[in-house]
Deep mutational scan, measured.
Amino acid sequence: VTLFVALYDYEARTEDDLSFHKGSKFQILNSSEGDWWEARSLTTGETGYIPSNYVAPV
């Protein structure tokens, strides 16, 4: 499992996005959609889309 960590805070703009804070960790579920990845937050357990340029591999 590849884990990613948030580099910045992000406020969701749609109900499909995940809001998160810098330092939040994610499991990436689908990275084939270009700049928006489907991810599960390891902090909240919620699933949604995150901007790929806001995260980096742990």
Rank of each mutant, 00 (worst) to 15 (best):
G23W: 05
G23V: 01
A39K: 00
L18V: 06
E11K: 11
Q27T: 10
P57W: 05
F20A: 01
W36G: 02
W36Q: 06
A6R: 00
A56P: 01
S52M: 09
Y49H: 07
V55Y: 01
D35F: 13
E46N: 08
F4E: 00
R13F: 08
Y54K: 06
R40L: 14
E11Q: 13
F20Y: 01
P57Q: 09
W36H: 06
D17V: 15
A6Q: 01
L3F: 11
L3G: 03
N30Y: 07
L18R: 01
P51W: 07
T14S: 14
S52F: 08
S19L: 01
K25C: 14
A39T: 01
F4M: 08
W37G: 00
I28R: 03
R13W: 07
T43M: 09
W37S: 03
E46Y: 07
D16C: 15
Q27G: 03
S19I: 02
G23E: 04
Y49R: 14
L42T: 07
Y54A: 12
S32A: 12
Y54R: 06
S31D: 13
E15S: 13
T2M: 13
F26P: 01
S41I: 10
S41G: 03
D16V: 13
T44S: 09
A39S: 02
E11G: 05
S19R: 04
L18I: 12
L3D: 06
R13V: 12
V5N: 02
G45T: 03
E33L: 14
T43A: 13
E15N: 12
E15D: 12
T14R: 15
V55K: 01
F26N: 00
V55W: 02
V5H: 05
A39G: 04
T44V: 02
Y8H: 08
T44Q: 03
E33R: 15
E11M: 10
T44G: 04
K25E: 10
D16E: 12
P57G: 05
P57S: 07
S31A: 13
E46C: 09
D16Y: 15
K25L: 15
L7F: 03
T47A: 06
V58P: 04
F26M: 05
A39C: 05
S52V: 08
S19Y: 03
L42F: 07
E38H: 14
A6S: 05
K25Y: 15
K22D: 01
N30F: 07
S31W: 13
Y8F: 11
F26V: 03
A56G: 08
N30L: 06
P51K: 06
R13Q: 14
D16H: 15
L29A: 05
S32Q: 12
I50S: 00
G48V: 03
R13I: 11
P51R: 07
R40A: 06
S19P: 05
L7G: 01
A39E: 01
S52I: 06
T43L: 12
S31I: 11
H21E: 13
E15G: 13
T43H: 11
T43D: 15
L3K: 05
D17E: 15
R40T: 13
Y10M: 02
D17Y: 14
D17C: 15
G45D: 06
G34N: 13
S52N: 06
A56Y: 09
V58Y: 13
L42Y: 07
V55R: 00
L3Q: 07
P51C: 09
D17A: 15
L7H: 02
N53F: 09
V1H: 13
V58E: 10
R40I: 14
T14N: 14
G45S: 05
Y8M: 09
E33I: 11
G48Q: 02
